[in-house]
């Protein structure tokens, strides 16, 4: 599947992935984060169930301290 991840086109060798699997594929190990799929906020407890499919627009934001 081809998706847009953080405004960039990315291709994965799977027809679909959960948010948890997608983050494992990308080696994302962030503690504090915000996830959006097609503009919809995805809560942490939904990461194992929420499916990302071909054409989806995914934003995975790593929140870090400083300001």
């Amino acid at each position: 599947m081809k998706i847009t991840l953080n405004n960039r086109e990315e291709e994965f060798g799977f027809p679909e992935l959960t948010i948890t699997r997608l983050m494992a594929e990308k080696n994302f190990t962030f503690r504090m984060l915000v996830v959006k799929v097609n503009g919809e906020l995805v809560k942490r407890h939904e990461f194992d169930h929420k499916i990302v499919r071909d054409g989806d627009d995914v934003m995975i934001l790593h929140l870090i301290t400083g300001g």
Binding site: M32, V34, K36, L41, L63, I64, G67
Partner: peptide
């Protein structure tokens, strides 16, 4: 959003978006 702490950034982003 002009917080210092990551937890607070997450809180306000989730609150405003959700």
């Amino acid at each position: 959003e002009a917080f210092d702490k990551a937890e607070m950034k997450q809180m306000i982003i989730e609150t405003v978006l959700g």
